[in-house]
């Protein structure tokens, strides 16, 4: 199975991979955000060991500073995300046009509680974002970079059904 929400399966951190990433960004302090983005792309979250490693390898940084930056920005996740990353836009335009019923429909469908990031089977992660800039198509949902426009509770159920079917 996928790593998913099962935290007992620790992600294997490859220091070789981390060195490669650090190399691309010249081990530079000012590139820390870009480095963390790359690491997250690799592991689908920021493993603690990776942050500690980066914090000790870059001059002028400490693991604590790295953790500080990682927790500051909404994009970074300290727990594994699902294979399908669902982002429900809850910007003003989407909110006014009913993004909350869509979010609730997803929670219901995937059996997820409020505040739960990743579904039990590790397949889906769910979060709200403040604006994706596709306000003309509100409400929108983005799943792994694909934008689904003008969503309703029924429409998102169809989308999720299709994804679930693909996974079977």
């Amino acid at each position: 199975m996928l790593g998913g929400a099962d935290m007992s399966i620790a992600t294997k951190i490859s220091t070789k991979k981390l060195d490669e990433i650090l190399q691309i960004y010249d081990y530079k302090k000012s590139n820390l955000i870009a480095i963390l983005q790359k690491v997250q792309e690799e592991y689908r979250y920021l493993p603690e060991e990776a942050m500690i490693y980066i914090g000790t390898k870059i001059e002028g940084l400490s693991p604590a500073t790295v953790l500080g930056v990682a927790t500051f920005y909404a994009q970074f996740s300290l727990e594994p995300k699902g294979k399908f990353e669902i982002k429900v836009c809850d910007g003003t335009a989407c909110h006014v046009r009913g993004s909350m019923p869509v979010l609730n429909a997803i929670r219901q469908k995937l059996n997820m509680k409020e505040g739960q990031l990743t579904s039990e089977n590790g397949l889906f992660s769910l979060e709200t974002v403040s604006c994706l800039g596709a306000c003309g198509l509100a409400p929108v949902v983005v799943i792994n970079e694909k934008v689904y426009p003008q969503m309703t509770s029924d429409a998102i159920n169809i989308v999720l059904d299709t994804l679930l079917k693909e996974e079977e």
């Binding site: 003003t92 335009a93 403040s130 800039g133 306000c135």
Partner: peptide, 11 residues
């Protein structure tokens, strides 16, 4: 960094 929800001119 067009963070204002509901604005997308810069994009």
């Amino acid at each position: 960094d067009e963070g204002d929800p509901g604005a997308f001119m810069d994009r």
